[in-house]
Design a protein around this nucleic acid. Structure first.
Lengths: 244, 244
DNA sequence: CGGCTCCTTGATATACGTCAATGGGCGTGG
DNA sequence: CCACGCCCATTGACGTATATCAAGGAGCCG
């Protein structure tokens, strides 16, 4: 299961699995010392998930935490009649899981091919108790997610369909290339979500999303290939459409 | 400024100002020891605000943290053309302020008469460094707010106007009486928000909010007196309307 | 080739927004 | 005391953005 982990605590100390891992640089693992990393890596599993795989169900108990190593995980909520809303997207190297609560309040599902690094909840919970740095990292990530959620509330509550779709494209573009907002030059990326997912993220229908995308395409704000591959020649024009 | 604070560290120790304060029991101050409470209370100010008073502007620097002692504070975001969205409501004994960031990403405004207990940011930031318990409390509150924000995203994105208004009434009812959801019997409360605020919270217009409220009234789900005073005879019927 | 899934496009319906008029409560000033 | 204006809320008539319903195309796999 973790056969790739060389346990040579006496050399550099950092488990090989972790050495190149983004979570150690920008994610929560950055708050751990070498010993903790070693302990954790012994009890961690790398997993690959296909799109659509459900990680945790709504209201379901959670016994695992994970770091997102690659791909996109969507967090969704559903009403009893089936209406669905995506309440968050997690990109690498985000931490996935809900400290201090045994059950999740939403379901987590792979939107794309996803690679995870998972570990038992108990182990992390114990590390949180011991290591203020880890708790600090978690607080930082949680505050970031809260900011993002509130930004999105403005989008959901007050923007038009056209602005919503542009805002979504902006969100993805920025995640692909964090410098994108400032730099000149075209940005290109693959949409991690289907039209149905985009609709659930924006509080719209598939049809409306589709219409707004073709409108953006016809207006030259974006180019679309194969439904998924997007090029944004001028991010400023996109931002205008998103009312940013 | 803090003339009411008896500094008798040798008796009970807890500053009189804090003794009856809800923030010490259920809020972040619960994570502080007596010494910290004394230090903090020496540098804290009780303030009363009139409805409409702005606490912090969007993008503005924050030099103060506060506990909400009474009343309701609304957190709002605005688009450049004036469209507005309330992204959160803070009730007593919520903590108000943004750790690790000098500027706020939304504006905070008193929705009702509000009583605050404010203290300098620097002091708290230092206490956070020293006291893991305090950081833990902050993480808990932040996670709670994140859950609430995501719940609301479902409301904003996927519920009808009728369901939105019912959801809002439910939110207020539960905040007034946390047991309300289970217990039988009528619940009665004053709306802390004007119709305009409710509209900004729900992503609707004033008129639509008004129409939905009169519909609920005509259907006997609620009684309304003086525009603000609401009675809910049967919370179950309200929950049904909110699709909860 | 047929049968998927995903996406687009068009015609029509409807929930909600917009515009406009009205009324109630309340403080101010005659 | 009433008159006036102001703010807030309600109500109605009408407009429109987005949903719904329906058809069809493109890619993909067995």
């Amino acid at each position: 299961m973790d056969k790739k982990v060389r346990e040579d605590v006496h050399t550099t100390g950092v488990p090989t699995l972790c050495q190149a891992c983004d979570a150690r640089h920008r994610g929560v693992c950055g708050a751990l010392n070498t010993n903790q990393l070693v302990t954790l890596s012994k009890h961690s599993v790398r997993r690959k998930l296909d799109p659509g795989t459900e990680l945790v169900g709504e209201e379901q108990d959670v016994s695992q935490y994970s770091n997102v190593i690659g791909g996109v995980v969507k967090l969704t909520k559903m009403l009893s009649d089936g209406r669905q809303q995506i309440v968050g997207l997690q990109f690498a190297p985000d931490f996935l899981g809900r400290p201090f609560s045994r059950s999740s309040r939403f379901s987590a599902e792979a939107a794309t091919d996803v690679e995870l690094c998972s570990f038992s909840k108990g182990l992390i919970d114990r590390m949180i108790d011991e290591s203020p740095d880890l708790e600090h990292k978690l607080l930082e990530q949680t505050l970031k997610e809260l900011d993002e959620a509130r930004d999105w509330m403005l989008t959901l509550g007050r923007k038009t369909a056209a602005e919503k779709v542009a805002s979504f494209l902006h969100l993805i573009a920025v995640n692909v290339d964090p410098e994108a907002s400032e730099s000149e030059g075209p940005i290109t990326f693959d949409l991690p979500l289907t039209r149905a997912d985009i609709a659930d993220f924006l509080g719209l229908t598939i049809e409306t999303v589709s219409r707004q995308l073709t409108k953006l395409r016809k207006d030259g704000v974006i180019h679309i290939e194969n439904n998924r591959h997007i090029t944004v020649p001028d991010i400023e024009r996109l931002n205008d459409r998103a009312s940013l």
